[in-house]
């Protein structure tokens, strides 16, 4: 509680204190309640990220496994590979079509996050206005939106990586049986997972910027309007 002495004359603006920023840690604590209680809603937002990243992970891991199996150059295995439609003479199967598909799915995921966060800004105009009436600065609104959509994005990314890996392993095992574990490319699979994690996190953080900025631009007077 600050105590300000009442002055008879209008106070000069230079000596009026400025509202200070709420720290990231406190903002996280404040936003956490909302994230927790909007969990179901968050799951829907997250599902787009989960699917896109699962697809990316699946494509990469599958590619890693096939490459390592082709390199093994085993007669029985080569037959299995050809049966699965792999061109064993062109070992790198990451053709242009695949890159295009992955890019498209990532773009759809980016637009999906932006879209659902923008919707939540519109839904919460009143809430944002109210917070500003209570003394919140633009920075607080930006930070809390940023934290919320980044957390959703990162959680979705981790889930997507796990899902993609499981599906890739199951598909590989059903095609190539025991050979998968015998020639499992641990290093490149780990690398692919890291790439998926990085791309997913980056995407969700980038997607969080625009909605957070727009949210902060809402005016406190919006809270006063009654629209039921």
């Amino acid at each position: 509680m600050t105590t300000t002495t009442q002055t008879p004359a209008a106070t000069s603006p230079s000596i009026i204190p400025e509202q200070r920023h709420v720290t990231w840690a406190v903002t996280l604590q404040v936003s956490w309640a909302g994230i927790k209680r909007r969990f179901f809603r968050s799951l829907i937002t997250m599902s787009g990220v989960v699917l896109a990243i699962a697809f990316l992970t699946y494509m990469q891991v599958m590619n890693d496994i096939v490459k390592s199996l082709v390199l093994a150059n085993d007669t029985v295995l080569n037959a299995l590979l050809q049966k699965a439609g792999v061109d064993i003479y062109a070992a790198d199967s990451s053709d242009r079509m695949m890159i295009l598909l992955i890019t498209l799915s990532l773009l759809a995921c980016l637009v999906g996050i932006i879209n659902s966060m923008l919707m939540s800004v519109t839904e919460r105009i009143k809430e944002i206005g109210t917070m500003k009436c209570l003394g919140a600065l633009d920075g607080f609104i930006i930070r809390s939106y940023f934290i919320e959509s980044s957390l959703q994005g990162v959680a979705g990314t981790v889930l997507g990586c796990i899902l993609g890996l499981i599906v890739a392993l199951a598909a590989a095992a059903s095609n190539y049986h025991g050979y998968v574990m015998k020639h499992f490319p641990w290093l490149s699979v780990a690398g692919s997972l890291v790439i998926s994690l990085l791309i997913g996190t980056l995407l969700s953080v980038v997607a969080a910027i625009l909605p957070a900025y727009l949210a902060a631009k809402k005016q406190p007077v919006d809270a006063m309007r009654v629209e039921e």
Binding site: Q6, T7, P8, A9, A10, T11, P13, I16, P17, E18, Q19, K132, C133, L134, G135, A136, L137, D138, P220
Partner: peptide, 16 residues
């Protein structure tokens, strides 16, 4: 005692 028109955004937030 605060002339609201003269305040910047952060001062206004403080007053609010």
């Amino acid at each position: 005692g605060y002339c609201l028109q003269e305040l910047n955004q952060k001062q206004l937030a403080w007053v609010r």
